[in-house]
Design a protein around this nucleic acid. Structure first.
Length: 231
DNA sequence: GCCCAGGCTTAAA
DNA sequence: TTTAAGCATGGG
């Protein structure tokens, strides 16, 4: 079922080019997959934190601000005052909390990996995940997003959309845990970063175009056939 | 005005 | 161990 849904979504929407990233010399993120510089990997980490319970459009504005002030750098984030950082990321919401979160993340990499994300990303997925979860402001979804889209290692990302879509479709119970859902996908595909990458992005696409929270457009939804429409 | 958005932390039950 | 409140902007 999980595998069939993937094929259907891929056929309907095609590849999504996640994670959106700022090309060198620019300030706005674009959907264009390819090899990442160390700075771009850090930008993915920041974006993963900034997008917590927030629309990506608002996060983009915050990232543009950070780019304009050349702040995608661990030690620069640590040096600027928290209140000033909060002003730059204001459009992404929860700006006071997120300023602390960005600094906590950078502090951890500085203290434990000589400010080198690349060094950090040499760790195994298991270690990476455990360490990420120990950092203030990083929960399961943010940790998995960083592992998958910044470190490019296979760790499936579960979000509110994933739960909504699968529970409406009838594949999981409404109170399934994060780890249960994650395991459902991973046991289906094995450790495949490419599939995890595309699948999560396709789920977001589906949730935004058809499987909306309030008024889902089931008649034109690619998954309407076979969906229990349980909401 | 209301609801939602690519969650997480903290405190209370 | 589960549940609630708080965080906050911008678009529909």
């Amino acid at each position: 079922m999980i595998s069939k849904i993937y094929k259907t979504l891929l056929k309907r929407y095609d590849k999504q080019g996640w994670w959106p990233i700022t090309p060198p010399g620019h300030v706005e993120p674009v959907y264009d997959k390819g090899p990442r510089t160390a700075k771009q990997k850090l930008e993915v980490c920041f974006g993963a934190i900034l997008t917590q319970n927030t629309s990506w459009k608002n996060v983009e504005k915050a990232i543009v601000n950070l780019n304009k002030h050349d702040l995608i750098e661990i030690n620069k984030i640590l040096r600027i005052p928290k209140s000033q950082l909060a002003q730059y990321i204001k459009p992404s919401g929860y700006f006071n909390q997120k300023a602390i979160k960005l600094k906590s993340f950078c502090q951890y990499i500085k203290d434990n990996y000589q400010s080198s994300l690349e060094l950090f990303f040499e760790k195994t997925i298991k270690t990476l995940r455990r360490e990420l979860l120990s950092i203030h402001g990083i929960g399961p979804e943010t940790a998995d997003s960083i592992i998958l889209y910044a470190a490019a290692k296979p760790s499936f990302v579960v979000d509110t959309y994933t739960k909504r879509i699968l529970s409406r479709y009838g594949s999981i119970s409404k109170k399934a845990s994060y780890d249960e859902i994650k395991e459902l996908f991973e046991s289906q595909f094995g450790k495949n970063s490419q599939v995890y990458n595309e699948y999560h992005a396709l789920i977001v696409k589906l949730a935004k175009t058809h499987c909306l929270a309030k008024y889902p457009t089931c008649s034109s939804c690619p998954l309407t056939k076979g969906c229990k429409k349980d909401y």
